[in-house]
Each structure stands twice: as structure tokens, then as C-alpha cells.
Design a protein around this nucleic acid. Structure first.
Length: 514
RNA sequence: GGUCCGUUCGUCUAGGGGUUAGGACACAAGAUUUUCAUUCUUGUAACACGGGUUCGAUUCCCGUACGGACUACCA
């Protein structure tokens, strides 16, 4: 049995997804958002979107809108937060700086934080002096801060210069963190550094802002990536020093998404290298102008991406693999989330996509095809599109496949597969085709059944078995040896076009040996 | 280097002191299909290693190895 302290089962969860607007949202972020959302919906709770934009240097214009649009596309609805509003507004951390300043001050006054004046060079010197050095109980006395400096000096520096506020971590404590996914994690406070809480620009760091906001916004569960696990003890300390330990949210640190081959965190580089997207939507980097492909633009359906992502790190404990959002909300539980990182296997995503795509009605699939024909400036009636998707629907993985696979319905073959021709373009077959061409050219409103009987009649008139001439027919019509049902293909093409293609092929192709 | 986290088929994973270690994707074969694809059936394939504990360990404990995250006035 896993060590999992289960909270009140039907407690309404207040969870937050708290991305930083530093660029496109990573697909791993979408999974984090999804797990948060699932818990919120399952418990009848609240899904909050908070934007953590406390680093002005890394702010990227358009990133926030991108996040909003990505979540909307994925079907992850926000109940409260940026773009929606709510009782704890503002939800953009840059708009909450006074709050953080006030709480930081409180921490200094209660003796749990202090001012530090060290320059970048001084910090670097300290770190390079001793191996594994960090700003903590063993070094802070040698540094320039309100603990080591005389009061007058501190006052003077406070007034004149820039300073940061650091958390005062007392050694000799053991911090015990109960993680829903990992169980108990113990860390000695002597291992922890005096993290910067307030930066010299007056903005808080993640650690401070995160704890204060989670408290003020009454967050019940902090569900975030594993990269936060090492600093979680600092967060626990902050709750303690603020006197909020009873209100501290439960933590769940999610396993990372790993690259498909080798090891390591999944990166955009890997995705590019292996030819799959890593962002939900197309993203245009405002600096370089480079455009990265998104799942949406690559033809992935939201339902497929959600289903795929949900199972990357979580499983229902049954053999069920296909889940709608509604089913996920029912089945999800944090204590069935895995500890180990999951490699990102795009094949599985494709399989899900194929599944969800084929579950759509022809009308919708025809829409995908018509979108492509419009782009290509090719005319296609809705009726024809409907016919085409009907014969192609079992052969597609992505919506755009209808256009690629459906080429033969819009233009005659530009070339003929030489291998196929040399094998199957025989004297017998061509005799059948000649006869068939004649018959089919006169047919109006050709149906598959009619095409079949016409073809069989042509074959028997030449004393040839229909099956043996079929390959030649396919070559003449499509240029190759594979494709959807021929009779249906001819019905879509129509008698005239079928006859014309036969005429052309019979003209250019010669029978081997003759 | 230090701290923390992890390790079941190629991949996602179920399981858990005694199991033929289960499922899915991928892959392969067969059947169906006039072709290809679909569909169906079948198959290949895994408990990182070493010590304990135990009648018995893949499962519990400890090490080792390997991998990862973190180690900023970034989140």
C-alpha cells in the first residue's frame, strides 16, 4: 500500500495552474493544467489561472494570450483568474507587488527574513571559495547583510542602495513534506539556502509570491512539476514562518515528461529533431520570428491530446485506455499518478488521434477536406467531399490526410508506377480495359454497383477473370497499386473521367514484350 | 560535486511475498479484403545489479549502478 494520506474525499479542491509568460506553453504544462482541472471538476471545486510574471526580464509579449488560447483549445476551462476575474483579483503577480512587499516586511520583523546587500561579484566569490558553498547559516555571517552588519550600516545601505530580502533558514530542523505522489520527503534545514524572497527590483521571487498567493487564494492542492520538489521545503518553511501551517495546501509533484529516446527532459530541440510538436498551438517567437508547429495545426484533435496526456503519468487501474474529458473527471485520482518520468511517445498520440478522428461523422470530416481544397484552390462540392471521406475514413490519422490521400479524386495520375506496370499491365488486362472504357464512358451517374457489373461484363467478354484485370484498372486510374475500393473510386470519379483516364493510360502504357 | 527524486516488455503502464508477471502502443506473422489500409487472431518482448529478511522476493529493507530534477536577485 502506498503511503497516501487521503484528505476529505469530497473536499472541494481549489487548484491553480500558474504558468510564467516566458514563451509558448510546453505540452508538459498542458498536462499539469489538465491534472489540476480534473481534480477541480471532480470535487466540484475551482480551477484558477494565475500568471507568474515576476521576472520582467523574461516576459514575452503574447505569451499570456497564448496560454489562454491553448487551454481553451484543450478544453481546460478556467473558473477564476486571469481572463476571467474572481474574488482574489488581481491574478497577475506583477499587479500584486504591494501585497508581497507587505508580507516580506512582516517576515523581516518577525525575524524570519533579513536584508542582504551583496553584489553579484561578492556572491560569486563566496560560491567559488568553498565547494558546495551556499548562502546559508555557515556563510551568512561573512556576507553583507542586516545580520552581519551594524545597525547604522544596514540603515544606511537600506536607504541608499538596492537590497534583497532573504529567508533566514535556521539549521538543525528537519522539514517533513507530505507529497501525495511521493509520500514523505525529509530534508534537513542545514541543507537549505537562504533563498531570496524579494529581489532588488521590488518584485518577489517565485518562492514568496507562490506561497503568499496560494494562501490568500485558499489553494487546497499544489499540483506542479517535479522540478519544484527541491524547493518545496523552503515553501513549507514559509508557511510555518507566516503561521499558516494549518492552511498549507497539499503538495503533488508530477513526474517529468522525458524525451522519447535517451534520457532527459523533453525539449523543443528533441521535438524538432524527431518531427513532432511540443506546443499545443503554433507559436511565433516574437524575437526571432521563428514559428514552431503546434499540435492543433499539425492535425491533432484536442480529445486525442487530452487522452494521451492524461495517461502519461496516470492510469485508472483498469484496462480502459479511451477516456473522454468527462470520464477522466470521474476516474482521475492523484494517488494513481506515477513517480517515474514518462517518455513522450508520439506514436501513441497518433493512435489516439486516429481513433478520435474516425469517431467523427462524415459531415465533419468532409469539412476538413473542403478546408484543404479551398486552400489549394481546387473546386470540390460538398457532396463529392462526403463521398471521398466515406471511402477514406478508415485510412487517416490526421484531418489533412483526406486531402493527401484524396489527390486521385482531383487529378489524374501524373505518372505510373513502373514496377506495377511491368507486373500487371498485361495483354489480357488491357483488352478488358478497352472494352470497359467503352462501356463506362456512356454511363451517366455511375454507381459502384454499376461499375462493378460493367467491369465484370467487360472481363467476361474478353474471356478474362475480373480479378486478374483489376490491378491494371487501378494502375490506369490511380497510377499505383494501392488505394480505396476501386468501384467506389469510379463512382466518385464518374463515368467520363474514368473513361478518360483509361484512354490516357491505354495510350501511354505499353504491354511488356509487345 | 552536493541535496532530493526515480528504475517492470522498445514505449505508456497493471500487479505485488508463492502469478503462465496482465493490458495498450509499436513491431512481426496469419486470416479477411481483387490491392493498400481497416478489422480480427496470434506472436516476439520486461521485474537494473548485489546483499540481506523469509520456507520463498520482481514485490519488504540496505547498498551499488544508472537516470533525472534542483543547486540564480528564472520560474
Amino acid at each position: 500500500m502506498k503511503f497516501v494520506p487521503l484528505g476529505p474525499l469530497r473536499m472541494k479542491a481549489r487548484v491553480r495552474f500558474a504558468p510564467s509568460p516566458t514563451g509558448a506553453l510546453h505540452i508538459g504544462g498542458v498536462r499539469t493544467a489538465l491534472y489540476n482541472f480534473l481534480l477541480a471538476r471532480q470535487t466540484g471545486g475551482t480551477m484558477i489561472l494565475r500568471i507568474e510574471d515576476t521576472d520582467q526580464n523574461r516576459y514575452v509579449p503574447g505569451a499570456e494570450e497564448y496560454i489562454l488560447e491553448s487551454l481553451a483549445w484543450a478544453g481546460i476551462q478556467i473558473d477564476e483568474g486571469v481572463g476571467v476575474g474572481g474574488p482574489h483579483a488581481p491574478y497577475r503577480q506583477s499587479e500584486r507587488r504591494e501585497i508581497y512587499q507587505q508580507f516580506a516586511k512582516q517576515l523581516v520583523e518577525s525575524g524570519h527574513a533579513y536584508f542582504a546587500f551583496d553584489t553579484e561579484e561578492e556572491l560569486e566569490a563566496m560560491r567559488s571559495q568553498t565547494p558546495n558553498a551556499q548562502y546559508d547559516g555557515s556563510t551568512r555571517r561573512q556576507m553583507r547583510n542586516s545580520l552581519s552588519l551594524p545597525a547604522e550600516e544596514t540603515a544606511r545601505l537600506l536607504e541608499s542602495g538596492s537590497y534583497v530580502i532573504r529567508l533566514l533558514v535556521e539549521p538543525g530542523e528537519e522539514i517533513i513534506l507530505q507529497d501525495i505522489i511521493r509520500g514523505e520527503v525529509r530534508v534537513q534545514s542545514s541543507q537549505l539556502d537562504d533563498k531570496v524572497l524579494m529581489k532588488s527590483d521590488g518584485m518577489p521571487t517565485y518562492h514568496l509570491a507562490n506561497v503568499i498567493d496560494d494562501y490568500l487564494m485558499r489553494i487546497t492542492h499544489v499540483i506542479r512539476g517535479e522540478e519544484w520538489l527541491p524547493s518545496a521545503p523552503h515553501h513549507v518553511l514559509l508557511y510555518r514562518y507566516f503561521g499558516w501551517e494549518k492552511e498549507m495546501p497539499r503538495f503533488a509533484h508530477l513526474p517529468l515528461l522525458l524525451k522519447p529516446d535517451g534520457n532527459g527532459k523533453l525539449s523543443k530541440r528533441d521535438a524538432d529533431r524527431m518531427g513532432f510538436p511540443i506546443f499545443p498551438l503554433n507559436w511565433r517567437d516574437p524575437k526571432s520570428g521563428d514559428v514552431s508547429k503546434g499540435f492543433r495545426e499539425n492535425g491533432y484533435l484536442p480529445a486525442a491530446v487530452i487522452n494521451f496526456l492524461a495517461l502519461l503519468g496516470w492510469n485508472p487501474g483498469t484496462t480502459q485506455e479511451l477516456f473522454s474529458m468527462e470520464e477522466l473527471i470521474q476516474a482521475f485520482s492523484l494517488d494513481r499518478v506515477n513517480k517515474a518520468g514518462a517518455k513522450f511517445d508520439i506514436h501513441k498520440a497518433q493512435w489516439f488521434n486516429q481513433h478520435y478522428l474516425r469517431a467523427l461523422p462524415n459531415e465533419q470530416l468532409a469539412g476538413f477536406l473542403l478546408e484543404e481544397t479551398r486552400k489549394a484552390n481546387v473546386t470540390c462540392t460538398e457532396e463529392k467531399a462526403l463521398q471521398i471521406v466515406a471511402v477514406l475514413r478508415e485510412r487517416v490519422t490526421f484531418p489533412q490526410d483526406f486531402w493527401h490521400l484524396g489527390q486521385l479524386f482531383f487529378s489524374p495520375p501524373s505518372q505510373f508506377d513502373p514496377e506495377a506496370v511491368s507486373k500487371r499491365w498485361t495483354a489480357d488486362s488491357t483488352r478488358v480495359l478497352v472494352a470497359f472504357q467503352k462501356a463506362v464512358s456512356e454511363s451517366k451517374g455511375l454507381t459502384a454497383e454499376e461499375a462493378k457489373s460493367l467491369f465484370e461484363a467487360a472481363a467476361s467478354s474478353q474471356g478474362v477473370k475480373p480479378g486478374s484485370a483489376l490491378a491494371a484498372l487501378r494502375i490506369a486510374l490511380t497510377g499505383g497499386m494501392s488505394g480505396p475500393d476501386l468501384m467506389q473510386t469510379m463512382a466518385i470519379l464518374g463515368g467520363a473521367e474514368t473513361a478518360s483516364r483509361l484512354h490516357h493510360a491505354l495510350g501511354v502504357l505499353s504491354v511488356k514484350g509487345s
